[in-house]
Amino acid sequence: MLITCPYCGPRDVIEFTYQGDGNRERPQPASQDLDAWNAYVYDRLNPAGDHNEIWQHSGGCRAHLRVVRNTITHEILSTAFARGGHKAEGRS
């Protein structure tokens, strides 16, 4: 499996670490909504097909990527920095 890192280009999957389902939403830090926390910590989508995932390029630039991968064919449909839209807010 090859994952195209926006910094480093196409790289072998052994350079990457899977960091879980990218659909999870972390509740606000002070939230006491246990159901929401429970869903965030334990619930994972497990689709047979396209899946939104977080991967870290741990053997490279160490950036986290949002990867859309087909879990049946291992085809990578898209990759982008996980920081994505936050970049403008955080680093302007």
Binding site: A63, A82, R83, H86, K87
Partner: peptide
């Protein structure tokens, strides 16, 4: 990178 990208 993923949860708090706004932190410098």
């Amino acid at each position: 990178d993923v949860i708090w990208p706004e932190l410098k």
